[in-house]
Design a protein around this nucleic acid. Structure first.
Length: 495
RNA sequence: CGGGGCGUAGUUCAGUUGGCUAGAACGCUCGCUUUGGGAGCGAGAGGUCGCUAGUUCGAGUCUAGUCGCCCCGACCA
């Protein structure tokens, strides 16, 4: 009998990842023209992420707005580094009309070519900053602190659901300030918002740091990043925040008259987090039974499954609904009951496990007789029998315990698999180039030269992930060339 | 763009040297029995074998073309 067991991870990580997405009903796993269909359950995770982040953005003084999807080519080209960084992956609109050809086919009307091609936004710096230049003239107009929730398109040659799709959903914050210090503080603050969110809500520990010159955002002065480690030891950039300096201000002529009557360029930041974090969520916590969701972000935190016999269905379902109501009122839970009569209890257990619901409450006649219920936690599958009178407090404690335990396990993985190496041979072995089973983060001195970075990438597939924020300057030798190096960087194979 | 693979039922696939009315499992529909870990039995629906041309008495199967998809690489703030 085909029980749709998930691929075991020894077999193939990529298959396992797709299996989890499919089993949990998050998205269509076959990518259509580089784009992904996110199904309602997957989207509800994104909605929770949006709600939590949006609250933080508002708390830190930002407002939401919306800017157009299409960016004229000339506008995108205004900042030289920026356009270079995105040139290879832009979707371009060149025509505005279709017609019927002589042989009855619908074709693009050659007469309807646009005077100037429009780029589908890969990010919105350029189109937003064109407006900023009009909006800003005095120090009183600053800071501008705007965020937008939207979709962007980057024509990736190779895609993976959630982790890298041609179109994706995200938020992008764009601020303008009167001083470098204020802008840099903003960029760091927003990285902190991302780190707190990912660690506390998604239960994924991250390493926060600076990107190398080579890896930073096209057009930025400094790029700050949070890097997560997935279960196979590969790295995934979970969020970034850029100090843009005055690069865009100069390209878009964003100037203001300061208190001292001097005309100055503004200092800017941009920062983003995308549906990619759902990929990080899946790859961080899931097991061979399917998705495992941290309670703080799970669309459904508790599912109640009544188990009845022929003669006591009404009684059990009524009791289950009472408990549902009681928990909703006492605990403000996202809780659901699954009392359909066309699926067997075993089927339901399995269904909700695949969807990663943190706690399952089983209620049958055995439980009712003892005034108790059976709790099953998704992360360990441990069964706990609880008196109904203690249920409210038990559920609260258990949700916290699951959240903590997921974070701690992920933290343990990050700690034990982040290692320092003594030479380049060990570097190669540790970072894990041979197969997909054993990757690690490697912490090593690097001279910060571009050629070493490129050679290491060529030889090991590992890239510099970041220079951790808490790094101290030291004396050492570059792991690759042996020249003087001041900092230990994190290297890893990434998605 | 380079290398490899695949297009047959809703899904995953089988289909031999070309041969009769194209198959399985899962899923779906209906009925009865079930219900504490993916239920059982019975009945049923569901296919222009990606498309076009060719070879042949005969093509899911062979040939050519064409379209589409997947995997590996190049690309990926």
């Amino acid at each position: 009998m085909n029980k749709n067991k998930l691929t075991t991870r020894e077999e193939n990580y990529s298959d396992w990842y797709l299996d989890v997405i499919k089993a949990a009903d998050l998205a269509e796993t076959s990518i259509v023209r580089g784009c992904m269909i996110i199904k309602p359950y997957g989207y509800s995770i994104w909605e929770n992420i949006k709600d939590e982040l949006d609250k933080e953005f508002k708390r830190t003084g930002h407002k939401n707005a919306y800017f157009p999807l299409f960016i004229p080519l000339s506008l995108l080209s205004r900042e030289a580094d920026h356009v270079k960084g995105f040139a290879k992956e832009c979707a371009v609109v060149t025509h505005h009309r279709l017609i019927e050809s002589k042989d009855g086919k619908i074709i693009v009307d050659p007469e309807a070519e646009l005077e100037e091609p429009l780029i589908v936004r890969p990010t919105s710096e350029t189109i937003m900053y064109e407006s900023y230049s009009k909006w800003i003239s005095s120090w009183r107009d600053l800071p501008i602190m705007i965020n937008q929730w939207n979709n962007v398109v980057r024509w990736e040659l190779r895609t993976r659901p959630f982790i890298r799709t041609a179109e994706f959903l995200w938020q992008e914050g764009h601020t303008a300030h009167s001083t470098f210090e204020e802008a840099d503080k903003e960029a760091r603050t927003m990285l902190g918002v991302y780190r707190d969110f990912v660690e506390k809500k998604l239960a994924i520990p991250v390493i926060a740091g600076n990107k190398s010159e080579n890896e930073k955002f096209a057009g930025a002065l400094t790029t700050y990043t949070i890097e997560a480690m997935l279960q196979d030891g590969k790295a995934l950039q979970a969020g970034t925040s850029h100090n843009l300096g005055q690069n865009f201000a100069k390209a878009f002529d964003i100037k203001f008259t300061d208190k001292d009557s001097e005309i100055k360029y503004v200092w800017q930041t941009s920062w983003g987090m995308s549906t990619r974090v759902i990929g990080a969520l899946i790859m961080s916590h899931s097991d061979d039974n399917g998705l495992v969701l941290p309670p703080n972000i799970a669309p459904i935190q508790v599912v109640v499954i009544p188990i009845w016999k022929d003669n006591n269905k009404d009684e059990i379902v009524t009791k289950a609904n009472e408990i549902l109501k009681m928990l909703k009122e006492n605990n403000e839970l996202r809780i659901e009951i699954d009392d359909n009569d066309y699926e067997s209890p075993g089927f339901k257990f399995n269904k909700w496990e695949k969807k990663g619901v943190p706690i399952r409450i089983e209620m049958g006649s055995r439980d009712i007789e003892n005034s108790s219920v059976t709790l099953v936690r998704r992360d360990t599958l441990e069964k706990i029998i609880v008196k109904i009178s203690d249920l409210s407090s038990e559920i609260s404690n258990l949700l916290v315990s699951i959240q903590d335990s997921l974070y701690n396990n992920a933290m343990k993985r990050l700690t034990t698999n982040t290692v320092e190496v003594k030479d380049y041979d060990e570097f190669k072995k540790t970072v894990g180039t041979k197969d997909d089973s054993g990757h690690s983060f490697v912490k090593a001195f690097w001279c910060e030269g571009k050629s070493c970075e490129e050679k290491i990438k060529e030889e090991t597939k590992a890239t510099t992930r970041c220079l951790p924020l808490d790094s101290k300057e030291m004396e050492g030798k570059c792991i690759h060339c042996g020249e003087i190096a001041k900092h230990k960087w994190i290297f890893a194979v990434s998605y």
